[in-house]
């Protein structure tokens, strides 16, 4: 459904962040986007959602297609109306508004209605109890549920989640991830999941891309990537069983280099 074809992104006319990224996100599937800090994951999301503009970034090459329509460099407002929602990193909410007001705002682009609220409360029952509370005072986990719920209010065909696990307790992350999985299955929604927590992301994702320095260096079905030696070592922190780990053996640089080729 979503197709990125060899896109390049340049900030402020000089700083190149993406150097030819191609990927796709099919309907009803979860695609994980992994990589270290500064690899270009968030920039990729912003290129899709059109929010690059606010930061003086531009897609300078390649194209982005959604349902057969080119969307690169459209206004973010119009991209949302096509059915693409980016849930920003860091649990950004309207902190002075109540939980319910936050949710209603999420649906406002398509005339949000009460029925949609019930749907969100079904996934995150805790939000229903908190609905009159000012959202700025919620706990981290509740805030994360709220921003995902707010994204769902727009009934997107594609939801992009930027590090939903950031700073949350592992159990809570698991709970939230389960709801994400349920959502994509039930609503037939494509999900792009940007994560540092590679182990969990690979567990729920169908397909995964690994980014480094503005390029996709590795991709494949999630189950297959989870077995990949490099992924295991760099992202899952595992080495061959029984071997003692020494920094001399890692040959970190060499192995990374191979991906770039």
């Amino acid at each position: 459904m979503l197709l990125l074809n060899n896109i390049e992104v340049i900030y402020s006319d000089v700083i190149q962040v993406l150097r030819g990224v191609s990927m796709q996100a099919p309907e009803g599937k979860i695609v994980a986007l992994l990589g270290a800090n500064g690899a270009g994951k968030t920039t990729t999301l912003r290129a899709i959602s059109g929010l690059l503009r606010a930061q003086e970034g531009k897609v300078t090459r390649g194209n982005i297609e959604f349902g057969g329509q080119r969307i690169d460099n459209l206004d973010p407002e119009n991209i949302v109306r096509l059915g693409i929602i980016q849930v920003l990193e860091g649990r950004r909410l309207f902190r002075h508004l109540t939980v319910e007001e936050n949710l209603l705002l999420g649906g406002i682009a398509r005339g949000g209605i009460a029925r949609d609220l019930e749907q969100v409360y079904e996934y995150f029952p805790r939000l229903k109890d908190l609905r009159r509370r000012v959202s700025g005072y919620l706990s981290g986990g509740e805030q994360q549920m709220l921003v995902i719920g707010r994204g769902l209010m727009a009934h997107p065909k594609l939801m992009m989640l930027d590090e939903p696990s950031l700073g949350l307790a592992p159990l809570l992350v698991q709970e939230i991830f389960e709801e994400i999985k349920k959502m994509s299955e039930r609503e037939g929604m494509a999900i792009i999941l940007v994560e540092q927590n590679a182990r969990l992301a690979l567990k729920i994702a169908d397909y995964a891309y690994v980014m480094e320095n503005g390029r996709v260096v590795l991709d494949g079905p999630a189950a297959q990537l989870a077995e990949n030696e490099d992924i295991k070592e760099f992202y899952l922190g595992l080495t061959q069983v029984g071997e003692r780990k020494s920094y001399r053996d890692v040959k970190h640089y060499k192995r990374r280099k191979r991906w770039l080729g």
Binding site: S49, L51, A54, P76, E77, V80, R81, I85, Q86, V87, L88, R92, L93, F94, R95, H96, L97, E101, L105, G106, I108, A109, R110, R150, G151, A154
Partner: peptide, 14 residues
């Protein structure tokens, strides 16, 4: 009320 609080976030939800 939403738009005043965070312009970018407001844009991101359309």
């Amino acid at each position: 009320r939403g738009a005043s609080e965070d312009h970018e976030l407001a844009q991101s939800i359309g």
